[in-house]
Design a protein around this nucleic acid. Structure first.
Length: 508
DNA sequence: CGACGGGACGC
DNA sequence: CGACGGGACGC
């Protein structure tokens, strides 16, 4: 038996228990589908429990034990169809996911009614999948998949969602090469009830869903076993890492042997001349050819960069791989042929780490480039670890070519600020890249997000203050940026049916 | 002259 | 041990 006190004690603080005032409603007649449209489905997700217990337990036993956690929509004690015998399993449908979560966490393993045996409480599998269980069951109740503004960082996401419970990790998905946000993220909690509260209470703009579980380790091993039976695996544990480490900038210390040609992945806003100047920092540049990939507008530049000696190529790779140029884009620099001769096996790499003199030299060499490209030298210094206090953002300013004078960049909006003003943006003849948009529109404070619609030349910039949107319009409307003509005007209100419900914080 | 985004994890 | 019933034209 459990009493209310033990229940309360076992319920976590993030889970709001329904008080007695809800009980009369619970006690009214059940099974009325018109008032509980979801009672026979699993909506909202993970709101239906599957309870294994004694065949002696009656509906009322479940009602009195589980009713305290919230609104029960239906209790179904399964009986044998022909004999009518209680089969010892029961479905309990709650109105809310968090209610089911609290009930599960509090009641699993407890005994109820007058039966001196513990019950087992699980999330009911959806009706169509029968009784078969996911290989890694728990994950589907702990992990949310959310849409996030492109301007959001991992730690902002973490801070935003930690208000609902203890977070295992909060990872924004990023392009493997450019490291730009893809605009969605996983947030994993340690407890189902925390994930459930986040699912229900977070701002609707995040469009949360419970994430589909990743393939289990066993499944992955099976796959590997049948496809590529090579070597040992190294990382199936990343899903359990607290916060994804920034992808290392691997292998800075490659030997100066084996390759003279590099493949460079870079921002599509860079032209061949800019890339040439950058790679020409390292003596021995032979040529630099650029192609642009991505339709309808380029999403990246792919350059073939060759040096006259392997030492130069290795040096360029070492200095420039992972370098953020421009803001938001890390260069990817790798040998054209990555199946290098295995010089690593024989001897250890005794090449020293770049020392302070080398770095200083690089900076000196870079200065002319920086001048030419319109960067400020202290940003590069900061980037290479010598720098002064300024610009903690560690990213470089873009070389924005603009027909009008742009203000300095300003802080973005606080992460939970609401959009109060929107600019409608039209680019002609083609859309500007995200990183350029972000740079330009963040010159007016409190930018929330800026984006172009898919395959269109128009988009929106969202601000949390009306003043900024107005200033952006005043400055940018009619301007020409990177050769693109801009129209920036006040956005019409969304049509009614697409307006998302937003929190209303204003007292008025 | 353009109007309302986006959804899956390195093998 | 242990996985899917019942209801059914009304206000």
């Amino acid at each position: 038996m459990v009493n209310l006190a033990t229940l309360q004690a076992s319920i976590n603080p993030f889970c709001q228990i329904r008080s007695a005032c809800y009980l009369p409603e619970i006690n009214k007649e059940m099974g009325d589908k018109r008032s509980y449209p979801h009672s026979s489905t699993d909506e909202p997700p993970n709101s239906r429990l599957f309870v294994i217990g004694s065949k002696m337990l009656k509906e009322e036993d479940f009602r009195s034990a589980f009713g305290v956690f919230g609104t029960i929509e239906e209790i179904w004690v399964v009986k044998d169809r022909s004999t009518g015998e209680n089969k010892g399993v029961t479905y309990i449908k709650f109105a809310k996911t968090s209610e089911a979560a609290c009930a599960l966490e509090a009641m699993n393993g407890k005994s109820i009614g007058n039966v001196n045996r513990s019950i087992k409480v699980m999330i009911a599998a959806s009706r169509d999948q029968g009784s078969k269980r996911e290989s890694n069951e728990e994950e589907k109740t702990l992990r949310l998949f959310v849409v996030v503004p492109k301007t959001m960082t991992d730690s902002e996401l973490y801070d935003e969602f930690k208000t609902y419970g203890d977070i295992d990790y909060a990872n924004i998905l990023k392009d493997k090469e450019t490291r730009e946000s893809k605009g969605f993220a996983y947030v994993k909690y340690y407890k189902f009830s925390h994930a459930a509260i986040a699912f229900e209470e977070c701002d609707k703009k995040y469009r949360p869903v419970f994430a589909e579980p990743r393939k289990s380790q066993r499944d992955l091993e099976m796959d590997r076993h049948y496809s590529a039976p090579r070597g040992h695996d190294q990382d199936n544990y990343s899903q359990n890492m607290p916060i994804a480490p920034p992808l290392g900038i691997p292998d800075f210390h490659s030997s100066g042997e084996g390759f003279t040609k590099l493949i460079v992945i870079a921002s599509p806003v860079l032209n061949q001349d800019q890339l040439w100047k950058l790679f020409d920092i390292v003596p021995g540049l032979d040529y630099c050819h650029v192609n642009y990939e991505g339709r309808p507008r380029p999403t990246r530049a792919v350059a073939e960069v060759a040096y006259t000696s392997p030492q130069s190529a290795a040096h360029a790779r070492e200095k420039l791989h992972g370098f953020e140029y421009p803001m938001g884009f890390r260069l990817i620099v790798r040998p054209e042929q990555d199946n290098r001769p295995n010089v690593f096996a024989g001897r250890s790499l005794d090449k020293p780490k770049p020392d302070i003199l080398q770095i200083a030299e690089t900076i000196a060499q870079a200065s002319s480039l920086i001048q030419a490209a319109g960067f400020s030298p202290d940003i590069l210094q900061a980037k290479l670890g010598l720098g002064n206090k300024s610009n903690p953002g560690t990213s470089m300013d873009l070389d924005i070519q603009c027909s009008v004078k742009l203000p300095e960049r300003k802080p973005l909006a606080k992460i939970d600020d609401e959009t109060v003003a929107r600019c409608f943006i039209v680019c002609f003849p083609s859309a500007l890249h995200n990183s350029v948009l972000k740079d330009v529109f963040s010159r007016f404070e409190n930018l929330i997000d800026v984006y172009m619609l898919n395959n269109k030349n128009c988009g929106y910039a969202n601000y949390s203050t009306k003043k900024s949107a107005e200033e952006a319009i005043k400055v940018l409307h009619g301007a020409e940026i990177m050769g693109i003509r801009m129209k920036v005007m006040e956005a019409q209100e969304k049509p009614d049916h697409q307006r998302k419900r937003q929190r209303i914080d204003s007292p008025f």
